Simulated assay, not measured.
Amino acid sequence: MTSRLSLHRRHLLAGSASALAAAGLGTWSSHAAAQAKPLPSYAAWKDANSVIVHSSSTIETRRSAFGTSVITPADQLYVRNNLPAPPASVLDNRDAWQVSIEGVRNPRTLTLGELKTMGLETVATVLQCSGNGRGFFPHKPSGTPWTVGAAGCVVWSGVPVRSVVEALGGVAGDTLVYMTGTGGEVLPEGVPVDSVLVERSVPLKAMGDALLAWEMNGAPLSLAHGGPVRLVVPGYNGVNNIKYVKRLAFTPTESTAKIMQHGYRMSPLGGKADPTQASVLEMNVKSWINSPHPESGTLKAGQMQIHGVAFSGTTPVTKVEVSVDGGKTWHAAHFVGPDLGRFAWRQFALHVKIPAGNYVMVSRATDAAGNVQPEHRLENQSGYSNNSWADHGVKVTVA
């Protein structure tokens, strides 16, 4: 049943500079208004009107492009590559792509064609860059200033990693406590391999849900999103979902690659990353409003649907609340559309009748483990894992 809320003038935040600052809204419009850049050739099929091209390796979904359906269309989904994509010729014979499986009792190199005979599973997951929300950090971390658009919810099809491991005799020993995926990008010459190799390790428990996926949203996996085959680790940040995966190993220690040891670490402000700091692994509870959005312009007073998305890593979201006064008062939203499982996001909506004025609209999610989306971001040098509800708010003018 749709919630309905009648708003009165006491809820208005007209001209409230402090409320806008608290909501972290000052940086969004400057990023969205960045001059348009052409789509790179490997992603030329993307919908140029729905994305912001930051660089040849970073493409963000516009907040205004997120609709009310659960699944993000492939031509609107963000792109983040740590290295240039392999040549498109790797897709000419997809089934010939090889993945080395190591750290099992019967290690083998399997072609994608062979993997397709070993099992099949389909799962919907949120795919989110670790730096999504970086653009809201006041210290302006280096890296792409993502706002909300380095995320999407997609459907993967592939073979469960657990099925492959079982077929090869199981993990070869109790000391192998990490699952390590290695990407198949072409590495630049003249530099140490570990300094550029895309290789990430996640706890062994992630194997139970992981896929070697060759299909996304019902179509063969594109080069832009990791085709011919990608390691999908549901509930984990995007960097752990290895594109063009060529090696899957069960290891006693984390990868020695720089991207694992020093990259994607929760370093303190002004500090340098090191292996003792927390790694960016499972996603945290998060939500944001997609409509109204900062590109809406002045809205007409009266009936309105506020809607957005909410998710929480490996734990399902159970509740979303919406505030139109910058977090002073909260109202329960309702979920919209199908529940595609604990790794997918949920669309939420709140029906309001709203008079003229200026508003700061924010959302706050709670998951099944009792984790509540926080008001404030966790400050860190690289701008990772921002799930602050204040930062992700939207400023709306109603006339």
Rank of each mutant, 00 (worst) to 15 (best):
G15P: 04
S267P: 00
V90T: 09
V229P: 01
K272M: 14
S388I: 05
L20S: 08
A88E: 09
L13W: 05
A44I: 04
G227V: 02
R265T: 03
L204W: 02
G218R: 02
R342V: 06
T298R: 12
C153G: 01
V165D: 00
A249P: 06
S382A: 15
A150G: 11
A88P: 04
T147W: 14
L91S: 01
A34S: 10
A333G: 02
P234M: 11
P220N: 05
A257Y: 02
N132Y: 05
L378P: 08
I289D: 07
G119I: 09
V324I: 12
G238H: 15
G170A: 10
P294E: 12
N358K: 14
T147M: 15
D367E: 06
N93Y: 04
T58M: 15
V159E: 02
I306S: 05
P294K: 09
M304S: 09
A33Q: 13
E189H: 14
N106E: 14
A17R: 15
E60R: 04
H334S: 12
P73S: 09
F136I: 00
G370H: 05
F250V: 00
E215C: 07
A210L: 13
G226S: 03
T27C: 08
K246R: 10
V196Q: 12
A172P: 01
K319C: 06
W345S: 09
N237Y: 12
R342M: 11
K243D: 08
V148F: 08
M207T: 08
A167D: 10
P275S: 04
